[in-house]
Amino acid sequence: MLEVTGLSAHYGRAHILDGVALSVGAGEVVVLLGRNGAGKSTTMKAIMGLVPPSGGSLRFLGQEIAGREPFEIARLGLGYVPEERRVFSELTVLENLEVGRKPAPAGARPWTPERLFALFPSLGAMQDRPGGRMSGGEQQMLTIARTLMGNPRLLLLDEPSEGLAPVVVERMADAIRALKAEGLSILLSEQNLHFARAVSDRATIIEKGRIRWDGTMAALMAAAEVREQYLSV
């Protein structure tokens, strides 16, 4: 579904991504693991067109998307959930969802606010509350719901568990498993191995802008030396 090869990006003269390669298959949940500054968020942003890639190929559903505008990429069916959440703080929950609304591809069951409130019940109870007056966990749910309103085929989730209380992280994992059950493909970036393990099929490890390891979650859990070297858990 998503095929990234040789992806590079620069900030000024500094190489921040250097030949990143990864793939996500239909219905699959892949986690991009790495420490802060390893290049996870930049990879996500480069796929979305928010950081201009300086080299490499990004193929989504068979089309080349490198160099396209973020809005075009979003319209092809990529949904992006940023690390900083970035809910529209002065818009209500319903208005936030409205901004994300896009028509569903033919044959797919479109997301509606009602379906999303079933997935995230706490949002349903505060439909008219401005985004700025919600807790961090609620904002994280809203930002995912907002992206789902665009009926994406593939969801890019940048560090969804960051800064959340352990109980909220557990609820987040439940929601991601529910989305996977719906058939959605997900590329997740994480530092939290516990959380990644609970939801992902495959893992790709990134360090200093390069891919260092790639394999199934089970293989990663078996490879203690890999976790030791790159994740040190």
């Binding site: 809005f71 940023p82 970035r86 529209f88 665009g150």
Partner: peptide, 11 residues
């Protein structure tokens, strides 16, 4: 509030 995010949502 956040024009880049609006773009990333397909607008």
């Amino acid at each position: 509030q956040d024009r880049e995010m609006v773009g990333a949502l397909g607008v």
